[in-house]
Design a protein around this nucleic acid. Structure first.
Length: 502
RNA sequence: GUCCCGUUCGUCUAGCCAGGUCAGGACACCGGGUUUUCAUCCCGGCAACAGGGGUUCGAAUCCCCUACGGGACGCCA
């Protein structure tokens, strides 16, 4: 008589849709399907600064592209909506007030300055940074009164001692001392709930039965468990999956890997191969077959078969798999159709033609010119890349461009153009001298189609990989950035461009 | 720093829960064959139980310690 299985994926619409989202979605979906349950997409847009509707749309598009489908979500509705947290504020407010009334939470009026001081002192004394409970002693009357004209946050109370023990489906019991847990803010000054509160409230109200999420959440699970207790709700079953890793074993990051789902689309991978590959990261089907569809994964899916070591995302194996799909799973006619839908269509070729036309004498001239827009990565040697620049310059300029391009919104010709002009100015170098480097990094040749238009067509994900590849080539030839050089460049960049690297 | 999680070939992993196979498969790499080239395909090879201590007739498998790796420690999620 167990409750129906309902799983969810809860991405926040900040930045480009991440591979990790597809990875978690895949297992949530497979689990739901296996048990005849529902899979829900919920948008966690409680960060007002960083959330955007473009990003939300991109999540829909990216997941749809991979072939992952959700039963309920902001775009398709469902019986437990709305599925966008920014549309559920009343519910959170009501639940927060309940916690306040129960005295399981309290208002905190501490200033950011004071909190920073406290944190700095604790760090200096090598303690775990934690709220010191300053506002905990406020009386109910005083708290309410001050709230009328002072900004405040709401924090949840945490037991003074003892530990929280919860069951993770994949590792049995996990225990964490309450002393490790901070008095988590559950309502921000702007009135929005934080992740922890909204997540628990929504999972309950949406009747989520299994929370299958990344390992990074293990340490905050006690907060969630405690919230369920405060509310008097049954907690869902938790299962924390390993995190995808970079080749150096750190958590997969776009600094070291392509992590945007669109990278794979734009670089010419098949969604079914990508999904298949993600499915074999940390998981094997009972019969150990390596080529399988989402449906086949779902039919036999068993959470317990997940292996806990964080798998390294290996492009080489993904490519091999993609090749097998291309030559074994799809008929040639369909490959042609897919190829057309990819970039060999009038729309995309038209955009390139717009740039190439003046440079054509015959049709034969077209594809060589367009090649860099149709390939994953052009080839060139380090001499071509460096051109007339002094040896220490290319790496520095490429790195700065990589950082500056992070901020390019929208990703269009004019934005890109102004970014490169800014770099030229700040570095006190003529744009004309600066450009050959980027022409080569992007197209493999100093002579190519207009760069900014080209980059605009290429998109941020492919562009980033090309910059990185150029940096890699420089590194191999001994002209790269040393660890130290990178550090000092970061500092220099922060002061000169007024921007931090995060 | 503190806490939590993890650890089988370079990489993805099977085997572990219910101790007993030359520790199996795949990618990558190397060699050979097929192919007018290349790729595909086929055959072969290289290569791992992190270390130490227990329990046991017997440990990759169970227990403990150490090391290493990762994650978390935000009014981000």
């Amino acid at each position: 008589m167990s409750a129906p299985v309902r799983t969810r994926i809860a991405p926040s619409p900040t930045g480009a849709p991440h591979l990790g989202t597809a990875y978690m979605a895949l297992f949530n979906l497979a689990f739901a399907r296996k048990h005849g349950g529902q899979f829900i997409l919920r948008i966690e847009d409680t960060d007002r600064q960083r959330s955007s509707t473009e990003s939300e749309q991109a999540i829909f598009d990216a997941l749809r592209w991979t072939g992952i489908e959700w039963d309920e979500g902001p775009d398709c509705g469902g019986d437990f909506g709305p599925y966008r947290q920014s549309e559920r504020l009343d519910l959170y407010e009501q639940e927060i007030n309940r916690l306040l009334k129960q005295e399981d939470a309290y208002r905190c009026f501490c200033s950011a300055e004071r909190l920073n001081e406290v944190r700095a002192r604790q760090m200096a004394e090598k303690q775990t940074p934690r709220y010191d409970g300053h506002c905990l002693s406020l009386s109910a009357e005083e708290s309410i009164k001050r709230a009328e004209n002072e900004p405040f946050v709401v924090r949840m109370k945490i037991p003074q001692s003892g530990q929280c023990t919860f069951v993770d489906e994949l590792r049995e019991e996990v225990s964490i001392d309450w002393a490790q847990i901070d008095h988590q803010v559950i309502r921000k000054t702007d009135g929005f709930p934080t992740y922890h509160l909204a997540n628990v409230v929504d999972d309950h109200h949406m009747q989520i039965s299994h929370v299958i999420r990344g390992e990074e959440w293990i340490s905050s699970t006690p907060k969630h468990v405690l919230l369920y207790q405060y509310f008097g709700w049954d907690a869902p079953t938790f299962a924390h999956l390993p995190l995808l890793r970079n080749p150096d074993k750190s958590k997969l990051s776009k600094r070291k890997n392509p992590t945007g789902i669109f990278y794979f689309r734009d670089a010419g991978y098949l969604p079914e191969a990508l999904i298949n590959y993600l499915g074999m990261m940390g998981y094997t089907l009972p019969d150990q077959r390596e080529i399988f569809s989402l449906g086949e994964l779902s039919d036999t899916f068993d959470l317990k078969r997940i292996s806990l070591g964080g798998p390294i995302f290996d492009l080489a194996k993904l490519k091999w798999l993609n090749g097998r799909y291309l030559r074994e799973k799809l008929p040639a006619e369909e490959v042609v159709e897919r190829l057309q839908a990819w970039k060999a269509n009038p729309d995309f070729l038209g955009k390139i033609m717009h740039l190439a036309l003046q440079r054509l004498e015959t049709f034969s001239d077209f594809f060589p010119l367009a090649q860099f827009l149709l390939s994953e990565q052009p080839e060139y040697d380090v001499e071509t890349l460096c051109g007339k620049l002094s040896p220490d310059q290319p790496a520095k300029l490429l790195k700065i461009a990589e950082w500056e391009l992070e901020k390019a919104t929208p990703w269009d010709r004019d934005t890109l153009s102004s970014i490169f002009q800014k770099i030229a100015e700040t570095e006190d170098i003529k744009l004309k001298q600066l450009m050959p480097l980027f022409f080569v990094a992007m197209s493999g040749s100093a002579i190519s189609l207009p760069l900014f238009d080209g980059l605009a067509l290429l998109g941020p994900d492919l562009t980033r990989m090309r910059l990185r590849r150029a940096l890699e080539i420089l590194g191999e030839s001994g002209n790269g950035l040393s660890k130290k050089g990178l550090k000092s460049l970061e500092k220099e960049y922060a002061s000169r461009y007024g921007n931090r690297i995060d």
